[in-house]
């Protein structure tokens, strides 16, 4: 059951306003490459938004701006109404990178304690949250083992645990199921659905269109830095033969042909 109060109130949690991201081109010196062009997007409270696009479409560049890794060339982006240029904008978010690498000399427990301290979570609450998230990602049995002894799947689960340590209102997930086995993928999907039911907002990029269809309320497809399609999953499925993959291939295919 979804938390009605959280879903029904249309409150933008994430807002991207005419965003442009440009980099110096790697191929030819002196040229500027436009990674994102005039992107505007709003994700409301309680929504699960799927951010799709082929490789090099500008998804990661957009996420880099949202997370404050690089400044926008033009335009701005806001988290909870605060510009992403402000450090405080990231107080209520959880981020899971595509490839998770953590301090290998620390244990899962120590790494979560470290991140809890960064968020200013009091010790007693932090210990409670550490127990909770470690149980959730099923790493409770390995909590005192150094991360260097973990398998890839276990490291990905530590990533998910650290993304949840501050009980975030917005989760930014960059291909959260990449590198996981089918059971691990199912578990991550369950967690995303669970977060949605609790009224959390999730913004995630993925190449797994079936997964997107299952968990997302809305999707946006980015091609060459421009938002080509944006809408509710149910509407898009109705318009495009009940298959998100078909729609994606059409857009990407048209673009490749052009």
């Amino acid at each position: 059951m979804r938390v009605a109060t959280c879903v029904d109130v249309v409150e933008p949690i994430l807002k991207i306003d005419d965003l442009w991201v440009e980099y110096p081109s790697r191929e030819s010196k002196g040229r500027i490459q436009q990674a994102v062009k005039a992107l505007s997007l709003t994700v409301n409270r309680g929504e699960v938004f799927g951010f799709l696009g082929p490789n090099g479409a500008g998804k990661t560049s957009t996420m880099n701006v949202l997370l404050g890794f690089c400044p926008p060339t033009r335009g701005n982006a806001y988290l909870f109404g605060t510009s992403v240029r402000e450090t405080f904008a990231r107080q209520r978010i959880g981020y899971l990178p595509e490839l998770t690498y953590y301090y290998k000399f620390l244990t899962a427990e120590e790494i979560l304690r470290f991140y809890a301290q960064i968020f200013g979570i009091p010790r007693a609450v932090a210990e409670q949250r550490i127990d909770l998230v470690l149980k959730l990602v099923e790493l409770d049995h390995a909590r005192r083992r150094p991360i260097k002894t973990y398998s890839k799947g276990m490291q990905q689960r530590v990533g998910l645990a650290q993304a949840l340590i501050n009980d975030p209102d917005l989760l930014i997930l960059d291909e959260p199921t990449s590198g996981l086995d089918p059971l691990g993928r199912m578990k991550v999907r369950q967690i995303i659905q669970r977060l949605r039911n609790e009224g959390k907002t999730v913004f995630f990029s993925s190449h797994e269109l079936g997964e997107v269809e299952t968990v997302c309320d809305r999707v946006g497809i980015l091609i060459q830095g421009e938002m080509r399609v944006e809408g509710k999953v149910s509407d898009l499925l109705q318009q495009h033969y009940g298959n998100l993959e078909q729609l994606f291939m059409e857009i990407v295919g048209c673009n490749a042909a052009a």
């Binding site: 301290q117 200013g120 909770l132 099923e138 578990k187 959390k200």
Partner: peptide, 29 residues
Amino acid sequence: MNNVVPLQSTPLRCSGPAVEFRSSPASRV
């Protein structure tokens, strides 16, 4: 992913609504 803990048994929130915490720059350092 053995010994799967039923999701329903582990609420993501500790208790009640999320509490806003904020650390001081010194504590982050």
